[in-house]
Every structure is written in C-alpha cells, then in structure tokens.
Design a protein around this nucleic acid. Structure first.
Lengths: 247, 247
DNA sequence: TCGTAATGACGAACGGTGTTCGTATCGCGT
DNA sequence: ACGCGATACGAACACCGTTCGTCATTACGA
C-alpha cells in the first residue's frame, strides 16, 4: 500500500501539504442550491451502480444518468475517471472499523481488518481492481495502513516485517476479491459457470494422468475450499510465517 | 488457480473433453496460403503490443493493425477479446520452466517458479489483470498448477495445504505484478511519479503524528523495499507459515 | 449597485472501444 | 460444375472518456 507512491497527484509537495491541511477543513457542501451536483452525490451514485452491476458497468455516463445530467458535468468535480475510482476506494476504506490494538490478539485483529476490507470489496464486485490501481491517495486508505501497522507493531512484529506484511495482505485481499468477482460475473464475456467442487474435481480427473499426475491424484483438494476458507488459510499462513520471525 | 472454474468455455463436458483430446492433435497451421491470419500470429502480435505499450493498449484494432487487416478478421479465430486475453496468459505460462521436484529444496523451487511467473508478467505490463480474470482454461496454466503441486507435495506439504498455497501464491503474484505495472505506467490517467524511498518516507512524515503515529514513526520502513524485496518477503512468509504446518 | 471574474453545468463533438452483420473469396468434397 | 464451409474484412452499431464552447449563477471588489 505504501510501496512507492504517496498520492501526490499532479502538484507535488504543495498538493500533498494542501491535502494534509484539508484534514481540518472539510470542503463545504453545496451552497443551499437545490440538488446541485456534489462530489458526494457522484460517489454515492457510482457506488450504487457498482454494487448493483459491478465495476465494469461504472461509466461516467452511467453516473451522470443517475444524477440526471450529462457526463461532462462530472468533470467540474473530478479530474477524470481514475480519480473517481480512487474516491470510491477511499470511501470503502473509511468504512472499515479499526480496533484498539491488543497485543494478545494481534493475529485475530489483523485478520479481522482484512476480512472487513474483503467484505467491503466483495459488496462492490470488481472494485478491487481500482484498489490495485490506486495510489494510497486518500487519507482513508492511509488510515487503514496506520491501523494495521498499529496492530502489528503493538503485537511485537518488527516494523519492517509489519510494513511489508501489510502490503502483502492488501495485495492479496485485492486479488482475492477481484478473482472472486470475475468468477461470479455472468456478463464478463465468458460463459463459465461456477462449478461445484465435485464438478470441478471431476473435470480435473479427466486430465491425462500421464501429464497431470498430481492434479488428478489430488483433484478433490484442488477443488475444495468453500466460503472464505482459502482466504483464511492464506492470511493464516502469511501471519504465521510472520510470527515465526516475530518472536 | 483451480478455485471453481475449469475452463469449460461454452460447451460443457464435450468442449472440455475435446480440449483434452486436442493435447495429442495440435491444430494444423495455415494451409499453404501465404500469410494467412492464424491464431499464432494474432497472439504474437498481441504480446508484442503489450510488451511495448502495456495491457491497456491492447485492442482488437491494434492487433489487427499489426497484421495489416481489420479487427473483424480476428473473430474468425477468437470468440472475443477475453479469449485473446486468456490465450496470452496461457502463452506466458507455457514459458515457465518447471523443475524436477527435489524434496530437500522445495521452498527454493516453489519460489523460483513464482519468480519466473512474476518476471513473465512484468515483461508484459499490466497483463496480470488478464491472469486474474482468466479461468485456468488452457492446459498451460494447468501445467503450472501441476508443477507447483508436484514441488509442494514431493516436499511433504499436505495436499490440501499445497492446493491452497498455490492458489494464494498465484493471486499474490498477479496482484504484485499488476500493482507494479500501474506504478510504472505514465499514461494511466494519473500523474504520480514513482518516488524514491526517501521521498516517500518524507511524505509520510508530513502526516499529522496525532492521527498517524505509527506511520510517522516507521516511515522509512514503510517506504523501504527495493527490487523484489517485498515479493521475496511475502512468499517467504507464506511458505514458512505453510512449513509450520507441514512438519 | 454594478461590473467582472470565477465556478458550475452541460450539449455537441471528438477519437476511441468491442462486436455484429453482410458480402466476397477460397478450398474441398461430391 | 456446384454447393457448402471456412476465412477474410468493410461498414456500421452501441458504447466509452474527455474536451471545448456556451450559458447561467454566484461571489467579490470598487
């Protein structure tokens, strides 16, 4: 999450400093005019579209249509589509509840934060693609980083390991959600049906054993993993591997 | 990688069975006609475009242009753009060299396979987005799965852990490469410059310490990580955490 | 109060995308 | 020779993000 870009926008230090200053001075809302286009309304409309139809359905025209205006109107509020994407991610990150760090339960706590983030992303199918593209340009995404860092460092994980583990977990959460979203999306130009585990295993067993011996032998394990078992397994392993260092 | 979809295409069992049968019967090339459009030429042209200009630059028109024809011509060979994307991923996976499993070095071996995949994906900026979207629909991507499974199982990792670890590693590799590609892509609608670690740390230190105490205190660790240090760290932790179970 | 500048709103148009449909040509089998 | 299937591909469709120009409103300074 903090791997080389710090949301500088186009303005360099001045822009970044201004953004920090804006922490204390939230932008005023519309000035009493009835139903003006506001950034907040744009973001809300966009999130509704993504929730309903997936990230690929999110276009400037669709957002504008929800607001009963034309797409050009949006550009008074956002520079471009990328910026709108970033705002959406910021909004989702702001909805994650960060716990008071407890050294005795740091593993549970970090996993809970990841699970919350996962669930936020999964509620908006495909949106984690924007999360991968986004620099941590909003204060809300940096707040997630801060919260996770607090958990790990308070739990005794060395700062360097903590920093990199957060990066790793975030990337994994994004990928997990993106892949899951593609799997469930019927209109993605693909005709794949989501297979039940036994169907999936049967498919794998049809492969030639001469060339795919392990795949055929372990088809059921390869196909297993309902709910978020894979997610839990991965983060469990990651933080366990971290713990093996953090002792 | 094998988490619910098995590249069924639109034909169900017949299509899958036909694809397995095709393992022994490769499609004949063009029938002596000079420079016919072939699937191979399409894939090569597409990969060249991605290598040069990134995945976002890959359009049917661009590919067709490289082949000195119109975009409609491509549809005699691929159903749609998604299918072309999948073929590209299959091609890249086919280029990964899978080792003869050695139980004494399974950790090194699995990490090497992941690193090869990473480097393949990084050579084609942004293409791992297609890898996340793709079902493992080609035999080549399933071959990667088989190779990794062989390494882990031969190394003593229980089959279920192995299966899920492969899935996790693959997702992480894809996300890592995608995020890295976005960071390096100047034309992505963003004006971010890639920051040096010290610049990045300085930015983080500008945040208010009252709200970001850990971030400010550990800015240099958060910004650290040159080359593929983060990649190595993550996979190290993941497989170490796996090893803690696999004893 | 008035004039000007700034801001917001937004239609028309631009250059771009994936895809379909219809037409033409070629190769193969009967 | 004829018919059919496969390949090739232009024209057109519906859609995309964005810019530019115009208009209306608001805010500010004299």
């Amino acid at each position: 999450m903090t791997s080389g870009r710090a949301g500088t926008g186009s303005g360099g230090d001045d822009d970044w400093a201004a953004r920090i200053a804006a922490l204390e001075n939230p932008r005023h809302a519309g000035r009493g005019r009835k139903d003006p286009i506001t950034l907040d309304r744009i973001v809300e409309a966009a999130l509704a579209i993504v929730a309903e139809e997936g990230f690929e359905a999110l276009t400037m025209r669709r957002v504008a249509g929800q607001l009963r205006t034309g797409p050009a109107s949006l550009y008074a509020h956002v520079h471009n589509k990328s910026e709108l994407d970033d705002l959406l991610i910021g909004r989702l990150c702001a909805q994650v509840r960060l716990p008071e760090p407890d050294p005795a339960r740091w593993r549970d706590q970090i996993r809970d934060v990841c699970a919350q983030l996962r669930d936020r992303f999964l509620s908006y199918p495909g949106i984690s693609r924007a999360a991968l593209a986004a620099a941590p340009r909003s204060i809300d995404t940096l707040a997630i980083n801060e919260g996770m860092l607090a958990i790990l460092v308070t739990g005794g994980v060395p700062a360097q390991s903590a920093a990199w583990a957060i990066d790793a977990a975030y990337l994994y959460v994004c990928a997990y959600c993106l892949e899951a979203s593609y799997r469930r999306e019927p209109g993605s130009g693909r005709d794949d049906r989501v297979l039940r585990a036994d169907e999936m295993a049967a498919r794998l067993r049809m492969l030639p054993a001469s060339r795919f011996p392990h795949t055929v032998a372990h088809a059921s394990e390869l196909a297993a993993g309902g709910g978020h078992e894979r997610f839990d397994f991965t983060l469990g392993a990651l933080f366990r591997g971290l713990g093996a260092t953090a002792s």
